[in-house]
């Protein structure tokens, strides 16, 4: 089956990004497809490359980046939610006249249409949030 996963809370404050990660891994292990994960609300903060957790804690952003590169998952960060919260890729940073970009590897900034597409095309949608 094709699973669409939505993460709508930020990392560390809330468990949602962790639960979604374990769920995605379990789905892949069982031979299902996870073509895309969509990050919305504070969930966009998972994609910040400026995250520096202590060494004895999990690195949520890196975990997602690694999982995505190993399984060709499209990690989509909502542009509207990201701009509110200061998550920018190189292009957006340039376009908005900002001097830094912080979108981590494996993540892609795009529109809410990507979320609706998942609902239309995939077999199941599972939301993780608060």
């Amino acid at each position: 089956m094709k699973f669409g996963i939505v993460v709508s809370e930020g990392p560390y404050t809330h468990q949602a990004a962790d639960t979604a990660y374990h769920f995605a891994k379990a789905a892949l292990d069982k031979g299902h497809e996870v073509p895309r994960v969509f990050f919305y609300h504070d969930g966009v903060n998972v994609s910040s490359s400026l995250t520096v957790p202590p060494q004895d804690e999990r690195h949520i952003q890196k975990n997602w980046s690694t999982l995505a590169s190993e399984n060709e998952i499209d990690l989509v960060v909502c542009i509207a939610a990201a701009q509110r919260r200061g998550i920018l890729d190189e292009n957006e940073a340039k376009r908005q006249g900002k001097d830094a970009a912080n979108l981590a590897e494996g993540f892609r900034i795009s529109g809410l249409g990507q979320l609706i597409e998942m609902g239309i095309e995939y077999d199941r949608m599972v939301m993780f949030g608060d």
């Binding site: 919305y40 609300h41 509207a80 939610a81 529109g111 809410l112 249409g113 979320l115 609706i116 597409e117 609902g119 239309i120």
Partner: peptide, 19 residues
């Protein structure tokens, strides 16, 4: 919280997909 506003933003975009 922002959930209500960002929910409305999703609906406005979703409306273009003829579902």
């Amino acid at each position: 919280t922002i959930y209500a506003l960002e929910s409305l933003e999703v609906v406005l975009i979703a409306a273009a997909f003829e579902q």
